[in-house]
Design a protein around this nucleic acid. Structure first.
Length: 556
RNA sequence: GUCCCAGUAGCUCAGUUGGAUAGAGCAACAGCCUCCUAAGCUGUAGGUCGGGAGUUCAAAUCUCUCCUGGGACGCCA
């Protein structure tokens, strides 16, 4: 536990003691101590609303209660310099912030692990994201999903959860037959023959190329083959090609999955098992030649079809078997990251979990709202190059990996995202990515120069008494907050809290940089202490950026 | 029609478990480099938190209702 968490803990404890000593409440009726960090410095470093909360229990005016608490409070024990009662009854604590300097050697020693905690206690969480159909290129929505899913996974890991990243490959069902038919049409086309592309076939450039490739490799070998045999080959071939491409796109995007789960593997036995369980629980029935699941009684709009009257399964059925399998694999929580167009599906899936005997609370769905590209103040609908929707690869080529990922993480998942291309590519002060990276590069520059000057410092041999400036304390407060930021971001499934933190930390550093000179040959002891401080900032900044998959450059 | 998300400064958005005078970046205006990277800093100005009602010591935050924008509602996946 870092000093900040320790002090906060002790402050809460001391507030509690003071309340009990003042006889304002019994131990069992005592509300949880809420400690806040006020927005304004005039309200101190910490503040509590305890007096207001106790107004009813103690039957006294809040300000009166506050005074009584203060009278019993032992300041010296917890680095409190001054206490004030303010407003309707807030108790504001002004700290002797020098204790914060203990963070410096602490962070230097922890290095790349600073910020990590065991908060999640190794709870097993699966995050399933992207899971795009293997029928074309990854697009903007997938890019957002990949960025958010990867960042959230990193954040959960850092907060002490045992995280598995998973991609669900939709390699069964009608869209895959469609893929085979689309490839078939392009294959014939490449051979100069006519074959109609199905109406809802895939028209992507990638399919055209697969068709060409097949024609070059095999000539007209497949023209004379029985249709089913040909389609099976094209299906398997296309699937392999598409998945290789998706996997490469994601790897280039900095995202790696632990498990690639195949939908078609469910057809071996897991679907039958799931149906059997549902049947035993009396959750299914036959009507109009189809098999239905009673989801309505669990909050869904209506019951849903599992097996169509033609004997094939709907998408829903293997998905139920899939989710049942996830929990059977021992995950305490399962998080799905879906596009906004799937939100109607949540109630259905949760109902299915309940029907099959799994607590639906253990399934969480994060819905990502739509992404809209802007350029020159106008909506970008299509790629200029291809005339089709803009792909993830094109986006990264245009604005770079760091900016792409940063922009996607920057906003809360449930807001519609306007992605400003001009802003993302601009190498200027308008661009929030560079603002943060620049802070890191500046620190690296200072550290390089200290080496050239032959100044070295060691975590165990610092004179921390020479850290006394207001701006230095501001920085230390930011550094100390980092572990809790990760916990909050993990708990609220809100990666954008990390980018908010990065902006704030960078801003606090830039402000410090302009006010305080680090390298000062006339005062080597202070220089060493300050070098250690900026080194701690560098470590924290780099750790934060790595959570969201953004580089921390040493020069810019 | 039912459901989900959003509505906060000119623009893009934060806003902790309900807390004090609602914050940041950009844009605007005024300053700061003989000094560790000016992709930076300091300051000024800018708001009926979509409207209304309620809950309470206290509401951007909770409840109800209405308005606006986006999306979802298949024996598709």
């Amino acid at each position: 536990m870092c000093v900040v968490a320790q002090i906060e803990q002790q402050l809460k404890e001391e507030i509690k003691n003071a309340v009990l000593k003042a006889g304002l409440a019994e131990e069992k009726e005592l509300p949880d101590v809420i400690l806040e960090t006020p927005k304004e410095k005039v309200h101190g470093d910490y503040s509590t609303n305890m007096a207001m909360q106790l107004a009813r229990i103690a039957k006294k005016a809040p300000r009166q209660i506050a005074e009584e608490i203060i009278a019993q409070f032992e300041k010296e024990k917890v680095h409190v310099e001054k206490i004030e009662v303010a407003g309707p009854g807030f108790i504001n604590f002004f700290m002797d912030n020098h204790y914060l300097t203990d963070l410096i050697p602490d962070i230097l020693k922890q290095g790349g692990t600073y910020g990590k905690t065991d908060y999640g206690k190794g709870e097993k969480i699966q995050v399933e994201f992207v899971s795009a159909n293997p029928t074309g290129d990854l697009h903007l929505g997938h890019a957002r999903g990949a960025a958010v899913g990867d960042a959230l996974s990193n954040i959960l890991s850092a907060a002490g959860y045992d995280v598995t990243r998973e991609y669900y490959i939709n390699d069964a069902g009608s869209q895959i037959r469609n893929l085979a038919l689309s490839i078939e049409a392009r294959y014939f086309e490449a051979l100069g023959m006519e074959k109609e592309l199905p109406e809802d076939g895939y028209r992507g450039q990638d399919i055209i190329e697969i068709g060409k490739e097949l024609a070059e490799k095999y000539g007209d070998k497949y023209v004379h083959m029985p249709e089913e045999e040909r389609l099976k080959f094209f299906r398997d071939y296309g699937l392999k090609k598409e998945m290789e491409k998706i996997e490469k796109d994601l790897a280039d995007y900095g995202v790696k999955f632990d498990v690639w789960f195949s939908e078609s593997s469910l057809y071996e036995s897991k679907i039958d098992e799931a149906i059997k369980v549902l049947d035993e629980k009396g959750q299914i029935y036959e009507k109009d030649g189809a098999l239905w699941l009673k989801t309505e009684q669990y909050g869904d709009d209506k019951d849903r079809v599992l097996r169509k009257s033609d004997g094939s399964y709907t998408y829903f059925m293997p998905d139920i078997a899939y989710h049942r399998d996830k929990f059977a694999r021992g995950f305490d929580k399962v998080i799905n990251i879906w596009g906004a167009d799937h939100h109607g599906y949540i109630a259905r899936m949760k109902a299915a979990m309940e029907a099959i005997g799994i607590d639906p609370e253990r399934l969480e769905v994060i819905i990502l709202q739509m992404v809209q590209l802007y350029k020159g103040g106008k909506k970008v609908k299509m790629s200029k190059r291809t005339g089709k929707a803009v792909t993830m690869r094109e986006l990264v080529e245009e604005v770079g990996l760091d900016a792409t990922r940063y922009f996607f993480i920057m906003r809360s998942p449930d807001t519609h995202l306007d992605f400003d291309l001009d802003l993302a590519v601009s190498e200027s002060n308008e661009n929030p990515v560079y603002y943060a990276q620049y802070a890191h590069a500046r620190i690296c520059s200072i550290l390089r120069q200290s080496e050239e000057l032959g100044i070295s410092f060691h975590a165990d041999n610092l004179n921390l008494d020479l850290i006394r400036e207001e701006k230095e304390y501001d920085l230390l407060k930011m550094l100390g907050a980092f572990p809790q930021v990760i916990i909050d971001a993990a708990e609220k499934r809100a990666p954008h809290r990390v980018t908010n933190y990065i902006q704030e930390l960078a801003s606090t550093f830039h402000s410090f940089y302009n006010a305080v000179k680090v390298l000062n040959e006339e005062n080597p002891e202070q220089t060493k202490a300050r070098l250690a401080l900026v080194k701690a900032v560098q470590i924290t900044l780099k750790n934060a950026l790595s959570l969201i998959g953004v580089q921390a450059p040493e020069r810019m």
